[in-house]
């Protein structure tokens, strides 16, 4: 099974004589990478994501590779005649899980996204944000090899937004590829392996280090066992890793990826000892860390 998704000179237009929405797009999405797609409204971002999710066939060019894909559309309809949990169980089996595993995963993900209380609520009665949580959950149920997020964060509350960022970090750490579009420039800032801009129907890789703000950073101080080396995952994700004393490192990691880095450090052979973890100073989740019990 080819897990690399490869677009070669891909173009897409709607209708036989319609204008080209995208043309000459070359893109490789490798396992374990996080890719951000940027562009103005109507530039063709969603079209590109639909091509990547293999929902649409290219009008010209070739797409090869067929990873197990999950897709989060911009809006999810509440017009489905199921309860939230029932809908997720169905979609979980469609994603290849057994019925029981799907039901369990549905519960887990609704709980993680803070919608556990709505498991038995009919989709038609869910709020916009809650039905968006169902959409996000369906994509994460079966640990997809490729996760395509089309403004998946829109409409989620702050806790669910953070949880989705964490889920993305987990997916990439587990070897899955994630491609996302989001209008917030701080979304997962500093962590994408590649950022592409869709302009004039073409795709351009943004190579310049983004002057844009690098999102909230968690500072992790760790001590090595004798002869310990930083695990490659931690090195890749960390924004900086200064050696404060012999065998002692101070890692600045994007807040969304702190769990992933800690897991990598603690499961390294030999494991690292975590001395301290300082939450980001401007974490929207905890605006005032000092007042917490």
């Amino acid at each position: 099974m080819d897990r690399d998704l490869r677009l070669t000179a891909v173009g897409r237009r709607y209708g036989i004589r319609g204008p080209w929405v995208l043309r000459g797009v070359d893109l490789v999405v490798a396992p374990g990478t996080l890719t951000r797609i940027e562009g103005t409204n109507g530039s063709g971002k969603s079209t590109l994501l639909r091509l990547l999710a293999r929902l649409d066939a290219p009008s010209e060019g070739r797409i090869s590779g067929r990873p197990r894909t999950a897709y989060v559309p911009e809006r999810f309809p509440s017009a489905l005649p199921f309860t939230a949990a029932g809908c997720l169980t169905h979609l979980g089996t469609v994603h290849g899980l057994g019925r029981e595993a799907a039901a369990r995963a549905a519960d887990t993900w609704l709980e993680r996204l803070g919608a556990g209380a709505y498991a038995g609520t009919p989709m038609a009665r869910l709020s916009k944000g809650s039905s968006q949580k169902v959409t996000v959950a369906q994509a994460l149920l079966a640990d997809p090899e490729l996760l395509v997020l089309d403004e998946a964060w829109t409409g989620l509350d702050a806790a669910a937004r953070t949880e989705l960022e964490r889920a993305v970090a987990e997916r990439t750490a587990a070897g899955g590829a994630v491609v996302f579009v989001d209008h917030d420039p701080c979304r997962l800032a500093g962590t994408p392996d590649a950022v592409y801009t869709v302009t004039d129907g073409g795709l351009r890789r943004r190579t310049d280090p983004p002057g844009a703000p690098s999102g909230p950073v968690t500072v992790v101080t760790v001590r090595a066992a004798p002869g310990g080396r930083l695990p490659p995952d931690a090195v890749r994700i960390a924004v900086s890793a200064e050696e404060t004393a012999p065998g002692r490192r101070r890692l600045a990691v994007p807040a969304s990826h702190s769990d992933t880095v800690l897991r990598a450090l603690l499961t390294a052979r030999p494991p690292w000892h975590v001395v301290s973890v300082e939450p980001p100073s401007h974490d929207p989740q905890h605006p005032d860390p000092g007042s917490r019990p």
């Binding site: 929902l55 897709y71 559309p73 999810f76 017009a79 489905l80 994603h95 959409t135």
Partner: peptide, 12 residues
């Protein structure tokens, strides 16, 4: 089937 739900199934 609403188009968005269809897209989720089609992706899988």
């Amino acid at each position: 089937e609403p188009p968005a739900a269809r897209a989720c199934v089609a992706a899988a």
